[in-house]
């Protein structure tokens, strides 16, 4: 699954970026460039899937792709997919990932769920003492509150939670093996979970692929959690509401108060280009944001025409072809999308 995901990303960024861009996307790097790439190339599913992915693992995979002749990488890090590579990418299944909206928070959801289920399982057998599976004291506090609020001692909670999980999982458009995978990451009284390695051996795949299948299942589950009151509560605050980076949000606040880019740069003691990146971010993710004060309609049309003609979103090429627009303006037009 990791190979397939990586192929898909490489396909979408073909000719346009360096190898590293894919790495930053998977790790969820919060830089202007990566954030803009997400919007430009429609990479939302993959953002921040593997925040801890070691560079070695990524590089090894890239080397493997070269060995398979799927990729050709230049010394500068720029690359292109070969015909075989593109064929392979076309054969990959469509994943139901939603990295952009969860950004690792799916693990918060699972952390809560798994501690709740562990607590209920031990409670069922009247075992009062156990080692909580989550060491995070904020998750522990949240779960304690949840259990008390639902009067867990009366015995209704586990029945209701079971019914919700059973029903919700039954309806998920995910294969049975992956549902099984997820419940084996849960643990309870005399029901230890299975380690990633144990699961990988059973499923005859790599640990990383197991973890990705697990993440995909959580994303799908979270997307369809509406209508399940308990699960919905457990998923509270998990979906990212503010899609802008924190810093861009501060810029947005000042911008809405009528400050110019120059003024914002001065107030925030940041470079003008950084503020411009924030504005681009806003153009991308705030549907009502108008780029009219920076670019005319005619200019925007010109950019799209050039982009089509030369089959690229590469700024450098567009900049040279068009001649009289700044990089900032080009980025804005591309970020806003074709009207």
């Amino acid at each position: 699954m990791f190979h397939q995901i990586l192929l898909q990303i490489f396909q979408k960024l073909n000719h346009e970026r360096t190898i590293s861009a894919a790495y930053h996307i998977l790790r969820g790097k919060r830089s202007g460039q990566t954030i803009q790439d997400i919007g430009l190339f429609q990479l939302h599913p993959y953002f921040g899937l593997l925040p801890k992915l070691p560079r070695e693992v990524f590089d090894e995979t890239v080397a493997l792709f070269q060995q398979y002749s799927w990729l050709e990488v230049q010394a500068s890090g720029h690359y292109s997919c070969t015909k075989v590579g593109l064929q392979r990418a076309a054969q990959t299944p469509e994943f139901l990932l939603a990295g952009w909206y969860y950004r690792g928070n799916e693990h918060l959801f699972f952390g809560r769920l798994s501690l709740i289920i562990q607590s209920l399982s031990y409670h069922q057998t009247n075992t009062r003492s156990f080692t909580p599976i989550s060491k995070d004291i904020h998750i522990q506090a949240w779960v304690r509150q949840f259990l008390l609020e639902h009067h867990y001692q009366q015995g209704h909670l586990q029945k209701q939670l079971w019914a919700e999980c059973e029903q919700a999982l039954k309806e998920l458009p995910v294969c049975e093996e992956n549902k099984q995978l997820m419940v084996y990451r849960l643990s309870g009284h005399q029901l230890p979970g299975w380690t990633w390695q144990q699961l990988a051996m059973e499923r005859k795949e790599t640990v990383l692929d197991c973890q990705l299948a697990f993440i995909e299942l959580l994303h799908v589950w979270l997307n369809s959690i509406h209508g399940y009151p308990l699960l919905q509560q457990i998923a509270e605050g998990v979906r990212v509401q503010a899609l802008l980076t924190d810093s861009a949000q501060q810029t947005a606040f000042l911008y809405e108060q009528g400050y110019s880019i120059d003024q914002i740069a001065q107030i925030r003691k940041l470079k003008q280009s950084t503020i411009e990146d924030h504005i681009v971010e806003m153009a991308m993710y705030e549907p009502n944001f108008s780029i009219g004060s920076f670019v005319t309609y005619g200019e925007a049309a010109k950019v799209w025409q050039a982009s089509k003609q030369y089959q690229t979103k590469k700024l450098k090429i567009l900049y040279e072809v068009i001649g009289d627009m700044s990089y900032f303006q080009l980025k804005l037009v591309l970020a806003k999308g074709e009207v």
Partner: peptide, 15 residues
Amino acid sequence: AMMSWQQRLQQLLLG
């Protein structure tokens, strides 16, 4: 040996 997800979920929550 692994159980089905339904069985395990049941064991976890309903015992």
